[in-house]
């Protein structure tokens, strides 16, 4: 059905049929691609339509669902889709965190969260003092948008590249704050260390953005799990991330992302930084 439609639009004098069909979207394509490649990597407030995002996500989920035989396969595929995003986010957000101005605008959003939310007494909360992980480098005090200077002056703004996060707590704070703020425009609602197992951490989101219109279980949240997993794995913290729904205080969509680090991560942490 897709073939006859564009045929009506194309000029009959055109030589190759296939080429002209392809030509139709090119003005948009060239614009979009050149836009992405010439765009500055610096942080700008880019808002995406939630509806468009939800429809895209819905389409992706249903396509994967159709092509999967079992639920486990579906979840693994969804996880894989998110994984690629997480891998890329590590580079991008680390770079952005090195920009003084960007750092300010980002870090100002997130340190407020974990202190306010109610805690489960059995779980020790990760101290909020580490939340400066993203903003730890020298940030200039000005809040003016330097993006107007253009991409060529971007390098001159960077005095020191942000050091790669080596501690579990630092990298998790980065996920909790910067990554969540980048993805969902707010930091995650809580970051909790499991009291039972030393390799388990929990990132809590009261209102998952991607899956808020999807009823039923947590299968679709494996996408976000994949993002986190890709991010952490690429940063040198191989782990497994699984979603769990734990309604609390009127947030009946509340999701806990359980991060289970591999044993090697804990061993390394023990050797490098002493007892954990």
């Amino acid at each position: 059905m897709s073939q006859p439609e564009p045929q009506k639009i194309i000029d009959p004098s055109s030589s190759s049929h296939k080429k002209t069909v392809k030509k139709l979207p090119t003005p948009l394509n060239t614009n979009a691609s050149s836009c992405i490649y010439t765009q500055s990597l610096a942080f700008t407030k880019n808002k995406v339509s939630l509806s468009a995002m939800a429809f895209l996500f819905q389409e992706m989920v249903s396509t994967i669902y159709k092509n999967s035989k079992t639920m486990a396969e579906f979840e693994a595929k969804l996880n894989k889709h998110g994984f690629g995003i997480g891998v890329r986010l590590l580079e991008l957000l680390n770079f952005r965190a090195s920009l003084p101005v960007t750092t300010n605008s980002r870090s100002s959003i997130f340190p407020s969260s974990s202190s306010t939310s109610a805690q489960n007494p059995s779980n020790s909360t990760v101290s909020a003092s580490g939340s400066g992980a993203a903003g730890g480098n020298s940030g200039s005090g000005s809040t003016t948008d330097r993006h107007s200077n253009g991409p060529e002056s971007l390098t001159s703004l960077i005095n020191t590249m942000k050091r790669r996060d080596l501690k579990i707590l630092d990298i998790l704070q980065f996920v909790h704050g910067t990554v969540w703020a980048y993805l969902f425009d707010h930091p995650s609602d809580d970051l909790v260390k499991s009291s039972e197992r030393s390799n388990e951490y929990m990132i809590v989101d009261n209102m998952p953005v991607f899956t808020q219109f999807i009823p039923g279980g947590v299968s679709c949240d494996f996408y976000v799990c994949g993002i986190v997993q890709g991010f952490l794995t690429n940063a040198g913290f191989p782990c497994r991330v699984t979603p769990h729904r734990m309604p609390q205080d009127g947030f009946d969509r509340r999701i806990v992302y359980l991060v289970q680090f591999d044993k090697q991560v804990l061993e390394r942490e023990g050797l490098r930084f002493g007892s954990n």
């Binding site: 429809f55 819905q58 249903s62 219109f213 009823p215 679709c220």
Partner: peptide, 22 residues
Amino acid sequence: YGDYVMKDPFYALEMPIKNSLF
């Protein structure tokens, strides 16, 4: 309906709506 039914990936169009969120 536009939010909770149409954005549900497991909803088949024109079929009965069984959706707890909606």
